[in-house]
Nucleic acid binder design. Structure first.
Lengths: 156, 156
DNA sequence: TTAAAATACTTAGCATGCTAACTAATTTGA
DNA sequence: TCAAATTAGTTAGCATGCTAAGTATTTTAA
């Protein structure tokens, strides 16, 4: 990495910098959970399904992840093929598919949560809670500004 | 956006959050420079070539951008086809191709720089220099941690 | 009440990152 | 000095985001 530190290239490459950090973090977690057979889109989907609670709809998961439906469809299909989740058509509203973990999926989820809590320590090493908080809020602000600029209004 | 703010989902979705902000920023800048006909990989490449100075090699640009050569090759080919740059084989070392802007490219670059300085204001609106600095350093730290975790050593 | 709009999801295909494996040119070192 | 290693760049093809456009179902409203 001969790249300049962020603050010196802020003008030049904010987009690229964010992309780099994103790819690095994704790669780090992917390596950590690879023994369990999960890629980043899969494990994040699993965590968000867990967070929303079983029986959530695909739409809810996409919203929670902040990605579009077609991106999610692909990932959920893979999770279903791997026997991690099932997607049952809702009997009330036949447009919706409600998501549940399989027995296998629940076991994998437990191991996943364990693994993630371990690497979180390492990923945030050297960053204080206060720093993390400032970064958190800063990124939210940045995202809002960007969405406004792109003429995509922010509800909320 | 019904997604939760960053600090509430830190445990869950750091990777996804960074990806979201990255995509939002990219989209914002892309919209802003679209009238000039540039996509994010193209305009960032142009800015880094400018920063490194004409006559730089592709390798240098890839390093500066923090992306791999094949990703850059595609983008530079597009810029060459659009008559923005030329890539001349170095007479000393025939493996290298040295990059120069065309007359057209220099004109586009000038307009690009103008446009970017305008939207930078809007993108960073509401963020103090100190906040930006903390974010900058935090992201560098995060990237280092992540690269270490992924067993890719940081040569700095 | 039923035609139009909205909603949940899918499919197809693009954009831009990546790795693996290749060519060609240069450098190294036995 | 010349075979092996390194370096710059390319090509092919994967991963994961996206939009556009389609289907099926539900809701709305004239």
């Amino acid at each position: 990495m001969s790249t300049l530190p962020f603050h010196e290239t802020l003008d030049l490459s904010l987009c690229g910098q964010l992309g780099r950090v994103h790819r690095a973090c994704r790669e780090a977690v992917s390596v950590a959970v690879a023994p369990l057979g999960f890629t980043q889109p899969r494990w994040t989907a699993m965590m968000h399904i867990h967070h929303l609670g079983e029986g959530c709809t695909q739409h809810q998961v996409a919203n929670s992840l902040g990605i579009e439906m077609p991106s999610l469809t692909r990932t959920l299909k893979q999770l279903e093929q791997s026997d991690i989740i099932v997607r049952n058509v809702d009997s009330q509203d036949k447009r919706c598919r409600r998501i549940y973990f399989t027995e296998q999926g629940l076991a994998d989820l437990a191991r996943l949560k364990q693994r993630i809590s371990e690497i979180k320590e390492l990923l945030y090493h050297g960053l204080s809670d206060e720093q993390l908080n400032i970064i958190a809020h800063g990124l939210v602000q940045l995202e809002e500004n960007a969405l406004k600029l792109a003429h995509k209004e922010v509800s909320l």
